[in-house]
Each structure stands twice: as structure tokens, then as C-alpha cells.
Design a binder for these strands. Structure first.
Length: 564
RNA sequence: GCGCCCGUAGCUCAGUCCGGAUAGAGCGCUGGCCUGCGGAGCCAGAGGUCCUGGGUUCAAAUCCCAGCGGGCGCGCCA
């Protein structure tokens, strides 16, 4: 598709040049940007351009007039069957189908590499995602972040970057959340031995805390009961973190996510990186003291207000350690890094960019080194009432539950079907019903059908089974066949678009459309028949379709089953 | 009050970043299709003030401004 488009581009430029030389169009210097795209209707041909319409104003001629002039000056090409002008000024191109045959052959030949690019040129990039607080099970919001981050990492790898996945553990023991969680766990533990200890105010009330306490009893018995309170509390801070992080890793594995690195916030402190970062900021004159706290002048770099780095208590803020963390990422030499955050963190975005600008890592007006993908929150709806998901209140639906309900593939497809900007409501009452109606099965079934045709061909020893690579693709003349070929040809562009925009749902939508087109083709035309040549060609098309479906699903982190 | 996101078919959403031709899909609804590659499928149909009002443009769901409605932020929490 890229090649054809480039060829059309060249043809159009030549037409403009020729018209200018003949004095039929005024010379306006560089051409404005214009598009060459498949038109909305098949009757309009294979590609259409708006060139005449964007030239209309600078050339001071009507779009139709420019279009007609361009048409007269359009050089001939053996692959161009005809071109025509359509109101209000489009130029429509009807091509011979060779570009479609090429796409089918290309797909079969490149197989799992079809749709991949090399624009990343092996440069290293980092995708950080999920990075939940270790105070409770991962929940559905984390699932959205997980599906997005993992698919984005896949996409970046597909366009030629060397991608690493990272999980940042917010495990600072002195943080209020971690302490509260540790105290809650301690209270539950003591309660299991019959001690009437008060549950901490604002403690974590979820059932999982009691379950963890039971687990600790199983492993250690009452060993911690007689400890001095101070020492016991420290022990439970550590235990709480340890247990939850192990749980997080396990459920992420279940969700099909493998990380290359886990970076601990506590480690940033222990290694002295936070301290060094603060010294660096001070040395650069970016800080000042006020009201007993240390502030950073983020407003000088586009933030709405200055931010506190070190509290009056002497404890650095999350912002301070996050700057240290991103300096650490930068040290490791990534061409750029991607962070996937829930939209409730959007206030953190301008200050991070301000900090990076202050440190010279990002510059005004240049492409950002830190690319932040924000996803809107996931709400649970029950009896058409939204549930407030809160770890402390214990009202959560965990990622584990979601996987129990609908499984990895349906969960990922659902979470990746919509733009990250769209808030998601999940209706629990319909969770299982919806899972059976999940469009993922529609796509997977299309893939399985393709595979089925091959096993069928093999079983009945159809000649096409071994001959499809040499097929005469020009036998594919039916509209359903051409539609299918066009989608096969479009796939690499879709991958590129999804990767550069960091938007996996483009791929999900495409997969749906491809499955739809394939099912239609399959219902109308018999693939394996007595017409051997036609069977060759159709089987080749099926192979190409299967490859594209599989590659698309793989990029989304979803299985492409051979049978269902 | 300020900032970010959303508002498109009965419901859930694509399409908005990069303005283009008759605005699409799934679910639901109505009516059809199984004596040949598994029907987890296919075909046809009904269903729309693209939140409202201005503006820019040859052309606006898309860009700009104002307003309305919903979500989320605005901590020396993370």
C-alpha cells in the first residue's frame, strides 16, 4: 500500500509540474500537504486525493477546474487503469489489481513479520505500566493499564524498537498507604488469635487482608504475637509488601504480561538516588525553601504551581522520587520512554514535563522524551448504579476476578476495543453474558476458519494444499475477494498508525473489520472446489488473511486459536 | 473557581489528533438463509437535531470560541 501510494504521489507531483510548465496552473512553490486515501465507496475507485481542493485557494481557481487540469496532465502508468474527477473536486484512481496480489504474496512470504516495520531502527525504548501501590490486589483499572501497556510495547517492537517493560513498585515503607496497610494486616493477624485489637481508622477493610493474615498464620503461626509492638509493626510492613507484590506478579503473569524490570521506589532511596537528585536540583538553582519545605520552581517550566520536593517533616515527596526515577530511566539510555497512567494522575503530567525540561531532558517545542498515555477510569456498574471502587472500603473487583469471569482474551479485547480516552463501564451483572458475546470470539473464529480450511485441504489431499504459493491471483475478481485483499494490503499501515499514536484500539477495530469481511467471503464463495486454479488462489488469500488476523491478535496479546 | 477527558443509532462505542463524497460497528429489534469447506456464521431491514449556539472554510462529527450535561483531578497523598 505504501508503494502504490508513493507512486501516486509521484504521479500527482508530475501532473502539477507539467501543468505549471504549460502555464495552466500558477506556480505556488511547495505543495501543501494533501492525502491519498481509499475513498469511502468502492465505486470511487481504489484511491482518492484531495489535492485539487487544497490547491484551490492558493491557486485561486475552483477545485473542479484544478482537478480537471491535473487530470489532463496526469502521466500514464501501466498500473493505472483510469482516473476521474468527482465533485466537489476529488481525483479518483482506479488501479489494476497488481498491488493487491503483491500484498497477498508479501503477507505469505513475510508471515509473522508481515506488518512489521523498521522505523525504530533497534533503538531502545521503555514502557512502564501498571505500577500499582502494593496495598491491595490489582483491580480492573490496573487491567486496562496492563492491557494498554503490553499492547503498546508489542506495537513499538513491531515497528522496530527494542522494547523493555518495566513495573515501578511504590513500596516506600514510610508512605502513609503502605503503613496503613501494614497496620490493617497486623490487626487482622492479632484478631485471628482472639486479641480484641482496634482496627485502624481508615484501614484497609477488604477481605483480602484477612486472607493474607490467615496465610501468615499458616506460614508462621503465632510467631509474631509476642514481638515488641514496634518491632512487630515493622515486620508487618515488610510482610504486607512482600505478599502483595508476589500476588501482583502472579496475576500479571496470568494476564499474559512479562516484565523485564521491576524497579523499587524504596531502592531509589536506599541507593541514594533521591538524595542525589535533590542535590542536583538545588545545585541548578531550581529550588527554594518556604514554610519549612523545599519547593521546586516548576512554574518556570510550564506548571501551574510550584511543587514541594521535601516536606516540612524532612521526608521527600512522591514527586521527588519520581524525578529520581525518571533520571534513572534517562541514564539507561532510552530513546524515549512511555508511561501508562490512569487519568486520576493527569495532574502529575505537567509537573513531570516541567521537571524534565528543568533538567534539560526535554525541550520546549520538541518531541517529548516522556510519552504519557492516560486512560480514563474503569467503573463498575451494578443494577445500573455505579460502584465506587475503593481498596480501603474493600469494594473492588480484582483482575483475578475479571480473569475468572471472562478470561484473558475477552478481557484484553474488551479493554483494547475503545480509545483510552473513553471511560469504561463494566456491568457485573452481565459480565458472563457479555463475555460470550465478546467480539473477540468473532475474530478468533475467523482465524480458526482459515486454519480449518487448511486442515480440510490436507485431509482430502486437495492439490491446492501444496500449490497455493504458486497461485494465479488474478483469478480473484469477486468483490468480496478484492475487499479482503485490500484489508490485507492495509494492515502494515494500521500497525504503523497504532504504534506511532500509541493507540492499540486501531488494531482491534481493524481485526473486527477483517473478520467481518472474511466471514462474508467465506459464506459466499467456496474455497476448495474442483476448479483447481481458483482453489489455489483462494487458499492463498485465506493464508494471507490468517496471517494478518494472527499478527493483529498477537500484537494485542490475544491468542489466535487454530480450532475453537 | 481552575485544569484534563467525555457527550455520535434503544444500549456500548469507532470515526475527531491529520476537516472531504451517502456518519460506521457490535449488541438489541424485524424478516430471511443449514442435503457441499463446523451456523461461535451470513443476508436484508428499521433505527441519527453527531449535546446546544456562534465562528473559520469551497467543505465541520472533526478546527476555534462560548455555554450545557457527566467523569476525574486541583494535598507538605501516591
Amino acid at each position: 500500500m505504501r508503494k502504490v501510494r508513493d507512486a501516486l504521489f509521484a504521479l500527482l507531483k508530475e501532473a502539477v509540474r507539467s501543468a505549471i510548465v504549460k502555464g495552466e496552473l500558477p506556480d505556488i512553490g511547495d505543495l501543501p500537504t494533501f492525502t491519498i486515501e481509499p475513498p469511502p465507496q468502492e465505486e470511487f475507485g481504489d484511491f482518492a486525493t484531495n489535492l485539487a481542493m487544497v490547491l484551490s485557494r492558493p491557486m485561486r481557481k475552483s477545485p473542479m477546474e484544478v482537478a480537471n487540469t491535473l487530470l489532463r496532465h496526469l502521466p500514464a502508468a501501466d498500473w493505472l487503469r483510469r482516473a476521474e474527477v468527482a465533485p466537489p473536486g476529488f481525483l479518483n484512481f482506479h488501479l489494476t489489481d497488481h498491488w493487491l496480489y503483491e500484498a497477498v504474496r508479501d503477507a505469505i512470504e513475510r508471515d509473522e513479520r508481515y506488518g512489521h516495520w523498521d522505523i525504530g531502527q533497534g533503538k531502545r525504548v521503555l514502557v512502564e505500566f501498571v505500577s500499582a501501590n502494593p496495598t491491595g490486589p490489582l483491580q480492573i483499572g490496573n487491567a486496562r493499564g496492563g492491557a494498554l501497556g503490553d499492547a503498546i510495547a508489542n506495537l513499538l517492537a513491531a515497528v522496530g524498537y527494542q522494547v523493555e517493560r518495566e513495573y515501578y513498585i511504590n513500596d516506600v515503607t514510610m508512605s502513609a498507604q503502605v503503613q496503613k496497610f501494614g497496620e490493617s494486616l497486623e490487626a487482622r493477624y492479632l484478631q485471628l488469635f482472639g486479641y480484641d485489637v482496634p482496627f485502624p481508622e481508615d484501614g484497609y477493610k477488604g477481605e483480602y487482608v484477612m486472607e493474607l493474615a490467615k496465610e501468615i498464620v499458616n506460614e508462621h503461626g503465632d510467631a509474631f504475637v509476642p514481638l515488641p509492638p514496634q518491632k512487630r509493626r515493622q515486620k508487618f510492613f515488610a510482610l504486607a509488601k512482600e505478599k502483595i507484590i508476589a500476588q501482583h506478579k502472579a496475576v500479571l503473569e496470568r494476564f499474559g504480561i512479562r516484565y523485564d524490570h521491576f524497579v523499587s521506589e524504596q531502592w531509589l532511596y536506599d541507593s541514594g538516588r533521591v538524595k542525589k537528585t535533590l542535590e542536583l536540583l538545588k545545585a541548578k538553582g531550581l529550588t527554594y525553601e518556604s514554610e519549612g519545605a523545599l519547593w521546586m520552581r516548576t512554574t518556570a517550566f510550564g506548571d501551574q504551581k510550584d511543587e514541594v520536593l521535601v516536606r516540612r517533616t524532612g521526608a521527600p515527596t512522591y514527586f521527588a522520587s519520581d524525578i529520581a526515577y525518571h533520571l534513572y530511566k534517562h541514564e539507561r539510555g532510552y530513546a524515549f520512554v512511555v508511561n501508562v497512567w490512569g487519568a486520576d494522575h493527569h495532574g502529575h503530567v505537567p509537573r513531570m514535563h516541567a521537571a524534565l525540561k528543568a533538567l534539560g531532558i526535554e525541550r520546549e517545542g520538541e518531541e517529548k522524551w516522556l510519552k504519557i498515555v492516560l486512560y480514563q477510569l474503569v467503573r463498575l456498574v451494578k443494577d445500573s448504579q455505579p460502584l465506587r471502587m475503593s481498596k480501603r472500603a474493600g469494594e473492588i473487583v480484582s483482575l483475578d476476578d475479571l480473569l475468572d469471569f471472562i478470561g484473558k482474551d475477552a478481557a484484553r479485547f474488551f479493554l483494547l476495543s475503545r480509545s483510552p480516552d473513553t471511560p469504561l463501564d463494566i456491568n457485573l451483572d452481565l459480565a458472563i453474558k457479555q463475555s460470550q458475546e465478546n467480539p473477540v470470539y468473532y475474530v478468533q473464529y475467523a482465524h480458526a476458519r482459515c486454519c480449518r480450511l487448511f486442515s480440510h485441504a490436507k485431509k482430502q489431499k486437495h492439490q491446492a494444499f501444496s500449490g497455493y504459493q504458486k497461485a494465479d491471483l488474478s483469478l480473484l475478481q469477486q468483490p468480496e475477494e478484492r475487499r479482503l485483499m485490500k484489508l490485507v494490503a492495509a494492515f502494515p499501515d494500521i500497525v504503523l498508525k497504532a504504534a506511532t499514536h500509541l493507540l492499540p484500539h486501531f488494531l482491534t477495530q481493524f481485526a473486527l473489520q477483517l473478520a467481518d469481511t472474511f466471514h462474508d467471503f467465506y459464506e459466499r464463495h467456496r474455497v476448495l472446489s474442483d476448479d483447481v486454479s481458483l482453489s489455489f488462489a483462494r487458499l492463498a488469500l485465506v493464508k494471507a488473511t490468517q496471517i494478518v488476523l494472527r499478527n493483529a491478535l498477537t500484537l494485542l496479546g490475544i491468542c489466535a486459536p487454530e480450532a475453537m
